[in-house]
């Protein structure tokens, strides 16, 4: 047991908008705090009173079940009251802006707004108009910080470290907020990042962030300690970016045969929901390398940590 825990930097942010703006130390502070909350999740009584009386609103302008459920449960485990607001497309087309909607919800006493929106930068804009803490639960193709944090936590818990590992992000990088947040987080924590997918889905300009870009999965897979398989977003029009699912699967699908040529201790992550048979085969998804379910558990711990940390900042007077 750790008799004398290392001092950590105090958390000073009221919002969590993305990993790009966080320092390495801040990311580590979240991961360490999440480790503490992981312990809470192992108890029979999985609840602590820290956020009693606080109100956490899930403000989702885009469909999501997993992230919303995970945030709700995380808030409940901290004894906060939670409320979901699935933004009806109707109220927004009636001329009410999302800022109006958010202000309305804040007037109901929300202390934390967990925001999912299809447009990049929307949570950032919101922070200029509300007093509550804002947590970005995914803004378009920009960032999805808690997903990347749970990926980082999963890697750290299962491999003991992140620094020095080679992590491959495979698939639709261009449209992926998960990819962007992962890139920032992994690079800050000292991992090597390889982006892999067809050129139409992997913008080469991302090399400027310090990643390696490859279009050949078979070439880069053996180099990877971790592979994070990003989802092909069929809700977007992908016809223009690759000719067929069959061809995509042939080139980038994670099959058992491919995994056999990878490192024996390869760790396989997928942010989900996955398309079995497109990004990876069922046997790989359920196989020994897969940490997909650990990710879900760690997601709770990460979201508890983030809710706890942002709630610790004094809010402006209303």
């Amino acid at each position: 047991m750790n008799l004398n825990p290392a001092p950590r930097i105090p958390w000073t942010r009221k919002h969590l908008l993305g990993l790009e703006e966080l320092s390495r130390e801040e990311i580590l502070a979240i991961l360490d705090t999440a480790d503490s909350f992981h312990e809470v999740s192992t108890r029979n009584r999985k609840k602590v009173p820290a956020l009693t009386g606080r109100v956490v609103f899930n403000l989702f302008f885009e469909n999501s079940t997993r992230t919303r459920t995970s945030f709700s449960l995380a808030a409940k485990r901290l004894s906060a009251d939670t409320q979901d607001f699935q933004a009806g497309v109707s109220s927004l087309t009636k001329g009410e802006t999302f800022i109006d909607t958010a202000k309305n919800i804040e007037a109901m006493g929300a202390d934390v707004l967990v925001v999912r929106h299809p447009t990049p930068g929307t949570p950032h804009l919101l922070t200029q108009h509300v007093h509550a803490s804002v947590i970005n639960a995914g803004d378009g193709a920009h960032e999805h910080p808690t997903q990347a944090l749970l990926d980082l936590l999963t890697i750290r818990r299962l491999r003991g470290r992140i620094e020095g590992l080679t992590v491959g992000l495979v698939g639709d990088i261009g449209h992926s907020r998960v990819a962007r947040s992962n890139i920032h987080g992994l690079l800050k924590l000292g991992a090597k990042v390889i982006l892999c997918g067809p050129p139409t889905l992997v913008p080469r300009s991302l090399e400027r962030l310090g990643c390696t870009v490859s279009n050949n999965l078979d070439e880069v897979l053996p180099l990877c300690d971790v592979v994070n398989v990003l989802r092909i977003q069929f809700e977007r029009d992908q016809k223009a970016v690759f000719p067929s699912i069959a061809e995509y699967f042939r080139l980038y699908g994670l099959t058992a045969a491919r995994v056999e040529r990878a490192k024996s201790d390869l760790l396989l992550l997928a942010p989900g929901p996955i398309n079995r048979g497109v990004e990876l085969t069922p046997e790989v998804a359920d196989g020994p390398h897969s940490a997909i379910l650990d990710q879900v558990t760690n997601g709770l711990a990460v979201r508890m940590a983030v809710l706890y940390l942002v709630s610790g900042q004094k809010t402006d007077p209303r």
Binding site: E20, P120, G121, D139, H175, S205, L209
Partner: peptide
């Protein structure tokens, strides 16, 4: 379109 738009996801 360029590095900045890619970084921001716009």
């Amino acid at each position: 379109e360029g590095f900045e738009s890619t970084r921001l996801g716009l």
